[in-house]
Design a binder for these strands. Structure first.
Lengths: 331, 331
DNA sequence: TTGAAAGCGATACCAT
DNA sequence: ATGGTATCGCTTTCAA
């Protein structure tokens, strides 16, 4: 069943049916109604491939994230999808799973599928992906990454500020509460670098890197005990990811380290469970939903106003104080 | 830049270029190599809209779930996407957010976009969505819902078995450990009905319904205390959803109810944090990743073998015993 | 091994 | 207000 069949049934040309489909006013009311009835009766749905090919517009937006089972991205994606759907756009979703070849394939695929624009959370900024996207004439918005490159709009959380909020919090404590400061972070990624950067501005912590998962966090604890003697020296732990922080907390509790008595902990992300774990976590809140909303609105704006100048958004973060590191006014 | 341009540059017809694109063997090696070089040099990517229109095949699968920020669906979606990508298919994703009109719109949209098949986790089985899908000739796989309707393949978790595993666990306890049994469940949905069904087969619990969120769980506790006197009568609580169970647990702990001393708790889902909360939760494990994997494999199989008969998968569940309701051999 | 030409299912311009 | 037709970019027969 296609537009020709409908035209034949209605005894008109397919041009007229097309006009009805496009809700053009240039159709006599009586014919419009007649055609609409035939369309409904036959459950006819226009073929968007053909329409897109002809219109050179797909009403679809490609979205690429590093991983989609991560609740942080889940919130972002959910919001992106809602906004796109409201505006009658479709979301085409891929995840790179942190491998650059997959990311590049995903980009190529979206180009081949003629998406109207892309929202990409790139693994890294120096990459073939970014260079291809930069050359393409397609509207591209970078999520979770900031670049000066004028080819891209950006929506990120202000990670630098987040890190410095943590530093401020620690510096507000009496020195006896922070005899030793240790930072735990994951693999090289702009977001984490910025968090560490903001944090290290006034503080020079010892740093553990490449601690990426809950299990990594759990396994780090023996090292912290023997190498850093955290049960003897009053320690503050800044962990740049709540999920990892959960692992560390579990490890500490298993070794009967008192939180926050012996060790203070500050995480990052404010995932649902950071407020619900054994010792609720002081952490930095981001706004994934808001990031998704702005990203989606912005890419649609870029698609519909190609000449508009690109914008860079940096969303503010907020320190959430909980039991794992309560506030103490520092005399 | 399109296939004609490439053809012109290579001094051949577009038919030949098309053959090269399709990796047809019927092209002289020398011309193939020459054309490939030109394609690469010009960063030419074939237009899949045109290809799909001509081939009547999009290599895309539509996926509709109730909500995507839910980690259960996150795991499913992530696996579906991986499998699809491996086979060079694309995932087009929508969420209904539990509203039927959105679900129906999503289905219509996917039909218009000529997806090769659909995986849908429907809000309900009696609905216009299902009736439209049933009539369509497109391969459709129902996720998280079982139906005898031969038009659909199904991939579900064996919720009935899950519920009865919980019942078996409780019945294995000495009667003094279960003076009172209460079930807490959410809104009407096949998965929850089946869990309750399997559970209630040998047990007739008092049931609280429409308890859907963490907060709902938290707020239920006062009622449990006053109405069911759970701090006086040794109570077993079956909560058909771990997230809600977390809320109930938090509420109980705030009221200084001892778990499992005064009240035993059993949840359902085995989400990441059910093993990490204050009193680790005895629960039923599903395999969302496995569900996603099977669903994706099956829909691809259906797409590529349209005549094959449809299958219904019911994945087994497993009882995970943790502190919130430890095992006791019931004398 | 290659090319010419007829689709695929819409849109949109130009007539009438 | 309506119809005829070229067009979007590619695939696929049929001939040569």
């Amino acid at each position: 069943m296609n537009i020709n069949d409908i035209a034949a049934l209605a005894g008109v040309s397919k041009a007229t049916v097309s006009r009805v489909l496009a809700e053009s006013p240039n159709v006599r009311d009586s014919t419009r109604v007649r055609i609409q009835k035939i369309i409904r009766d036959n459950n006819f749905e226009p073929n968007f491939l053909a329409r897109s090919l002809s219109r050179r517009k797909t009403f679809s937006v490609g979205v690429i994230v590093e991983e989609m089972s991560n609740p942080f991205f889940g919130s972002i994606l959910s919001m992106i999808e809602n906004v796109l759907n409201d505006k009658h756009y479709t979301m085409s979703l891929s995840s790179s799973n942190w491998v650059k070849e997959k990311e590049l394939d995903a980009v190529r695929n979206m180009i081949r599928n003629s998406v109207d624009g892309m929202i990409v959370s790139p693994i890294a900024l120096k990459s073939e992906t970014i260079s291809i996207l930069g050359k393409s004439s397609m509207p591209v918005l970078l999520l979770n990454n900031y670049t000066d490159n004028p080819a891209f709009s950006c929506v990120t959380s202000d990670n630098h500020q987040g890190g410095s909020l943590v530093a401020d919090h620690l510096l507000s404590l009496p020195p006896s509460e922070r005899e030793q400061i240790i930072a735990v972070t994951g693999f090289k990624h702009q977001t984490l670098d910025e968090r560490m950067d903001g944090f290290s501005h006034h503080i020079k912590p010892e740093v553990y890197e490449e601690i990426n998962t809950y299990e990594d966090g759990l396994n780090l604890v023996p090292t912290l005990l023997t190498r850093n003697r955290i049960n003897e020296i009053k320690t503050c732990l800044f962990i740049t990811n709540d999920n990892v922080a959960m692992g560390v907390q579990e490890g500490l509790l298993r070794h009967e380290v008192n939180i926050p008595g012996d060790v203070r902990m500050i995480g990052y992300d404010n995932i649902d469970f950071s407020g619900r774990c054994r010792v609720p976590l002081t952490t930095i809140e981001q706004s994934p939903g808001e990031m998704g909303r702005i990203a989606a609105m912005e890419i649609l704006d870029m698609i519909e106003n190609p000449e508009k100048e690109l914008r860079k958004f940096r969303l503010p973060t907020r320190l959430i104080i909980r039991e794992s590191s309560p506030a103490i006014s520092g005399e």
